[in-house]
Computed example of a mutant assay.
Amino acid sequence: MENGTISRRRFLMLAAGSVCAMAMPAWLAGCSAGQNGEGDGATADDGADSAAYEVQSLTLFLFDTVIQISALCAPELMDRLSERCQFFEDRFSRTKEGSDIWNINQAHGAPVEVSEETARCIEASLAYSEASDGLFDISIGAVSSLWDFVEGIKPDDDAIKEAVKHVDYRTISVDGTTVTLADPDAMLDLGGIAKGFITDDLVSMLREAGCKSAMLSLGGNVYVLGESFRGDDWNVGVQDPNGTANDVIASIPARDKSLVTSGLYERSFTIDDVLYYHILDPRTGYPAKTDLASASIVSDSSTDGDAYSTTLFLMGHDKAMDLLNSDERFSGLLIDMNDTATASNGSGFTLLSE
């Protein structure tokens, strides 16, 4: 980690003059160009063909989050990316009737045929569950379906106690594209991995189309592809979980990297002075008891980042930092309830002062 700090105000001023991506609900001013290149007017040089593209931008609301994509590419590629996002919404949504996950949850233990993408995502989830000793568990659906973080509804304690009996990733089996739940009352929820998996899929589409510069934001999942639209590093910021939506606590230069943040500020409500937030502990069915306000992870794979940022949050500060410092796939930034930020060894994060 760099020892120097710059002010958050100074960072915002710098952001207005350079392209950057933020791990927060909105991009900073000056970070993205408008549709058909409104903004910096940058072009992409594809080498021998010398094909020039303007910056194309796309904004959608799917997966219960705002999706923002900007890329130096042909306009038709944005249409394909939009269709691909809808493809995943139609298969991964827990609440959309007829989706793969909805069908699995309604099958009461009967085998269900799913798309190849759904099968791969579930198989990846099971590997993360094994690696985390069950801290990451997509069978949390039996519990998460009881909570409503939009309307601020807390389930009855007895209902949570009953539902948590059916949270166990070991009841899930995948055979090709057939998914079976050994527990007929178990339910899947891909909320802890879907955005990362989808981000990696979209990045692959961009690369296959020859795109050399792009930024993608799916809620707390940010991926920066290649160099920025101005030809330098992207500057990715981390939201202050204890501040307002536009408060930035740290930044990091990046190319071809994912930055995923899990934090208690994303979706939460308060009842009788008790804060309830959406990251549920699969062992208890309640919001995780942790000393962290947020956990951010930098990695090559957004799928890795999504699953492990949730795991880090559940681990708490000390165990999470041990994992970040011992696993060469990751670097990260942990922020505790007192707004103290700690970066892993050699992460490259710069902390921003007031």
Score class of each variant (00 low, 15 high):
216 L>F: 08
228 S>C: 07
119 A>S: 09
16 A>Y: 09
98 G>T: 05
187 M>N: 02
323 L>H: 11
274 V>I: 05
72 L>V: 11
101 I>V: 15
133 D>I: 04
331 S>K: 08
118 T>I: 08
82 S>G: 08
334 L>T: 11
105 N>T: 04
229 F>D: 01
290 T>W: 14
141 G>K: 00
42 A>Q: 07
209 A>P: 07
345 N>C: 13
96 K>A: 12
76 E>A: 04
93 S>Y: 13
98 G>V: 06
120 R>T: 11
295 A>W: 06
22 M>L: 07
261 T>S: 03
196 G>T: 02
351 L>A: 13
59 T>P: 03
164 V>A: 03
90 D>C: 13
217 S>H: 02
64 D>S: 15
155 P>C: 14
97 E>Y: 09
94 R>T: 05
204 S>Y: 12
212 K>D: 11
218 L>S: 03
320 A>N: 05
15 A>W: 05
353 S>Y: 09
265 Y>K: 02
58 L>C: 02
252 I>P: 05
2 E>F: 12
170 R>Q: 13
200 D>R: 06
110 A>H: 15
324 L>N: 05
76 E>Y: 14
241 P>H: 11
172 I>Y: 09
167 V>R: 00
66 V>W: 09
173 S>T: 14
105 N>Q: 06
101 I>G: 01
54 E>C: 13
254 A>Q: 02
88 F>L: 05
170 R>H: 14
266 E>V: 10
308 Y>D: 01
166 H>N: 07
212 K>I: 07
272 D>E: 11
2 E>M: 10
291 D>H: 10
344 S>P: 10
267 R>P: 07
181 L>E: 03
325 N>Q: 08
155 P>L: 12
39 G>T: 01
298 V>S: 04
69 I>F: 06
233 D>L: 06
169 Y>I: 00
167 V>C: 01
68 Q>M: 05
154 K>L: 10
45 D>W: 15
74 A>S: 15
296 S>C: 08
5 T>K: 11
132 S>H: 02
153 I>A: 14
195 K>Y: 04
151 E>C: 15
37 G>R: 02
80 R>N: 03
89 E>S: 12
68 Q>F: 04
293 A>E: 12
254 A>N: 03
123 E>N: 07
169 Y>K: 00
30 G>Y: 08
305 G>S: 05
12 L>M: 11
129 S>L: 01
124 A>P: 08
177 T>E: 12
200 D>L: 08
86 Q>E: 12
203 V>K: 07
242 N>S: 15
154 K>M: 12
290 T>P: 14
203 V>G: 09
239 Q>K: 12
8 R>E: 13
194 A>H: 06
156 D>V: 09
265 Y>A: 01
241 P>W: 13
4 G>I: 04
32 S>R: 04
28 L>Q: 03
204 S>N: 15
154 K>Q: 14
307 A>W: 07
7 S>K: 10
206 L>D: 07
